[in-house]
């Protein structure tokens, strides 16, 4: 084509698209680096409660997650319908919280260990018994910083 045109008369040359892959790759790398893939599949219902007096959690690398809620439909047969705790990908008992926290702590550099925050992602309808059991376990391993993770919205929606 270009050959053919050149013979006839000098027109504006077509813009080279050779560098298009480079641009796209650049974008690709940005998103690859920025992506945080959900590393846990939720096995529990996790409808977070609403609150409006919230603070943002900044450093994702310094957060440990504890999920709780009633097992979702697929797992109800095996796990029952009472609220359960989920750590990483597994259902867990209250006694599993301590080793989990200690393991997570040991993965981090010593100077960062004090700054770790435990994010409690508890379902709206979990009973407080379970929540206070988890909190008690956290106090045993000296993981005092916690965050009740919520959605933003008016608190009265929780009723």
């Amino acid at each position: 084509m270009a050959h053919f045109k050149n013979k006839k008369k000098k027109e504006l040359p077509a813009i080279s698209t050779a560098s298009l892959p480079d641009i796209v790759f650049m974008l690709l790398f940005f998103f690859m680096v920025a992506t945080v893939m959900r590393d846990t599949t939720l096995k529990v219902e996790n409808e977070l409660p609403y609150a409006d007096q919230v603070e943002k959690l900044q450093k994702k690398s310094l957060i440990m997650y504890i999920y709780a809620g009633t097992p979702s439909n697929r797992y109800r047969q095996t796990a029952g319908s009472e609220p359960r705790i989920q750590l990483n990908d597994k259902f867990a008992r209250v006694s599993d919280v301590q080793p989990y926290i200690l393991e997570e702590k040991s993965k981090k550099r010593p100077e960062l260990r004090r700054k770790l925050i435990t994010s409690l992602k508890m379902d709206d309808e979990t009973n407080m018994g379970l929540v206070s059991d988890v909190k008690h376990e956290l106090r045993k391993v000296e993981a005092y910083k916690i965050n009740y993770t919520t959605k933003s919205g008016e608190a009265s929606k929780n009723f």
């Binding site: 959900r38 919230v54 603070e55 959690l57 909190k135 106090r139 005092y144 910083k145 009740y148």
Partner: peptide
């Protein structure tokens, strides 16, 4: 690939009520 990563990206940050638990 770009579209795949665009779709899977979650840039949202968590938010909530922060508390310090008392020592046991």
């Amino acid at each position: 690939l770009l579209i795949f990563f665009l779709v899977t990206t979650t840039i949202e940050t968590d938010q909530g009520i922060s508390r310090n638990l008392p020592p046991l």
